[in-house]
Structure formats: C-alpha cells, structure tokens
Amino acid sequence: MTTRIERLQGRLAKLYLDAFLVTDPTNIYYLTGFHLLAGDGFLLVSTDRAIIVSDARYALALQEFDSDEVVAAISQDYYDDLNRICQTMKITVLGYESSLSYFLYDVLDEVMVADLVPFTNLIEKMRVVKDSTELAKLRRAADLHTAGFNYLLDQVQPGVSERHLANLLDFWMKEHGAIAAAFPTIIASGTNSAKPHATASDKLIADGDIVTVDFGYFVDGYTADMTRTFGVGSIDPELRDVYQIVNTARQAVIDQVKVGQRGDRLDAAGRSLIDEAGYGDEFNHGMGHGIGLAVHELPASYGPGTPDVKLVNNAVITVEPGIYIPELGGVRIEDDVVVTHGGPQVLTTAPTDLVIVGD
C-alpha cells in the first residue's frame, strides 16, 4: 500500500517541485505520525527522502520514533539547517504551505537559496479522503460523544449553570478516553440558544428552557463534532415545531449525501424546507463542514454558494441545520456522516427525537 509520504512524493514532479516543506503540525502528524508542536521544527519531503528537523527537546522522542521512511535531525537553527540540507540535496525549487506565517516566510526568504513556491491546501486535500483506520477512529470518537451526551442529560436540572454542565461534560469525556476538546463546548440555554456560537455562561438552566449542546473532542487524534438540542420542562410550542423542522431538514440533507454531490445542492435539500416553513432568515450559517484531524477540514464549509464543493468517497462531513429566533431560543442538530458509494453512513448515533428533561 502506498504511504502518505509516497503519495506526496509522487506529486512533486507534476508540481515542478524538488521538495515540499511542511510546517503545519497537523499535516506533519498526518504524513508521519509524529507529534510536533507548532513552531518546533519542520518536515522536508523530497522525491526520495523525508526528514523531520527539530531541536534537542525532541531528541528522545525522535529516537523512539519508529519509521521506515522518515529520518530525524536535531538542530539549533531550523531554517539555516534547512537551507544547508536543500543545498546538499540540490533542491532548487521548494514548495511550502501558504498558511505559513508572514514572519516565517520572511525568515525563509532571507536564508533560502532555493526558489520558494506557495501551495494552498496541498496536504489538506489529501486528508479529505479517510482510510479505514481513520474512519474507525472517527467512529469511536462519535460513539464517545453519544455516550457523553447521554451522561449529560442525567446531570441536567433547573438551577444548574451552563458552565457547570460544560465542566462536567469535559471531565467525563476526558475520563473516558478523550484527549482534548476541539473547541470550547457550547451549552446555550433559553434565549442564549438563539446565538449559534454562544459560549457556556453562568446562566442557570430554568424550567421552560431549550438547551443546545455542541461539542467536539479528540479521540486518538481525530475529532467528532455533535450537536443536540433538548428541552427542560414545558417549552414554548413554537420551539417544538421548530425542532421538528430542523430535524426534518437534517435528515433531508443526509438523504442526499452521495459521491459527486455538489455542496450547494446538498445544502438546498435542507435549507429549502426551512425556507418553506418561514424561517429562512433565522438560518444564518452553512449546512456543515469536513472533520477529521481538525474540527474544520475540507470542505471547510458547504452552503448556498458552494457549487465547487464535490463530495468524494470516504470524506466525512457534518450536517447541522439550525433555526435561531431572538428572544425565544434556537435549535441545532448536528450529525457526522461518511460519504460512500453505497450512500451515507451516519456516525453519530445519539437519538434525534426531541428529549424533554423533567417530563
């Protein structure tokens, strides 16, 4: 089987490159399996070599790093050494990630003899298609999120704060195998739930609140991203109706997930239902995005203006329609879905029927 580094090496000649410089730590991990913090070195991939360069802090970890295709070097000046390596290997055209900071580009421009050529999302596009190992990790992550949500429901009662619930969920997830949160957990109750990116606050959960929980945690390097909305006690009848509209839209989008599907058409499958119900102005974000080693991978977003987004086999996307009514509350339901030739595979198994706590 061709390795990820070999896939990248096979592309270099077609891109008119002698080598490619990788500085993004997630991309380094994707290609090599080695964890390097941002700014702590780089990976250089030429047509026949792959070299990780870092400093003495990583010496032991690199000695223990078991790889048949990556060699390591310890440096006291990363980019002076990069220039020397490139000259030794007769690298005259060096590609780099366009996400590079201007400061680091300025350093490279100053020290490098090789010509520098930027590329956007070269490795990120490789990451879109997940292999069986990646899909298994994403499935485990999604299963943990379902279990975490079920745990959280048992902790909800009037008088407990959003922040306390977020802290309980964080502790439970990490105690049961999660490494870290992919983003600050959203627990938004009552009118706070009308803010799509509300953060957990000191607001106390009250009877009659609708509550949105949006969370993502890394499990073995890969993150799921799940949102559920539930009610506490007797909620406004309009919010019950809105919930059903959002849930129907979610399923309508999932039903249209297939290889080759355009992003705008996928979005329209759900957005049209929300528009027809009279809530088009209250749905103010995209329908979803890719996930994997990061919580936002390619496709970074798909919505009405994304005809160029085309779903590919074994990509993993979120489906997350929502309706947000100021001064009343909001509803969002989000699933993680694998795109396959045989149709969509939904990873998130938490029930999507409206749950009322305290009934």
Rank of each mutant, 00 (worst) to 15 (best):
D209V: 04
D209H: 15
I210H: 00
I210P: 05
I210E: 00
I210R: 00
V211L: 05
T212H: 01
T212C: 08
T212I: 07
T212Q: 10
V213H: 03
V213R: 01
V213S: 00
V213E: 00
D214N: 10
D214E: 12
F215S: 11
F215I: 10
G216C: 05
G216T: 04
G216H: 01
Y217T: 04
Y217D: 06
Y217N: 06
Y217M: 13
Y217W: 13
F218P: 07
V219N: 02
V219F: 09
V219R: 01
D220V: 11
D220C: 10
G221H: 13
G221E: 15
G221W: 10
Y222H: 12
Y222E: 05
T223K: 05
T223S: 10
A224V: 00
A224T: 01
D225L: 05
D225C: 06
D225F: 12
T227E: 15
R228N: 06
T229L: 07
T229M: 10
T229S: 13
T229N: 12
T229P: 11
F230Y: 12
F230S: 01
G231S: 12
G231M: 09
G231K: 08
G231Q: 08
G231P: 15
G231F: 10
V232A: 06
V232M: 15
V232H: 04
G233Q: 06
G233E: 03
G233N: 11
G233H: 09
G233S: 11
S234Q: 07
S234M: 08
I235K: 01
I235A: 03
I235D: 01
I235L: 06
D236C: 13
D236E: 13
P237V: 06
P237H: 09
P237F: 09
P237N: 09
P237R: 08
P237L: 10
E238T: 11
L239W: 01
L239N: 02
L239F: 01
L239R: 02
L239C: 04
L239T: 03
R240F: 08
R240N: 13
D241Q: 15
D241E: 15
V242N: 12
V242M: 12
Y243E: 02
Y243N: 03
Y243Q: 02
Y243I: 01
Y243G: 00
Y243L: 00
Y243P: 03
Q244M: 14
I245Y: 00
I245A: 03
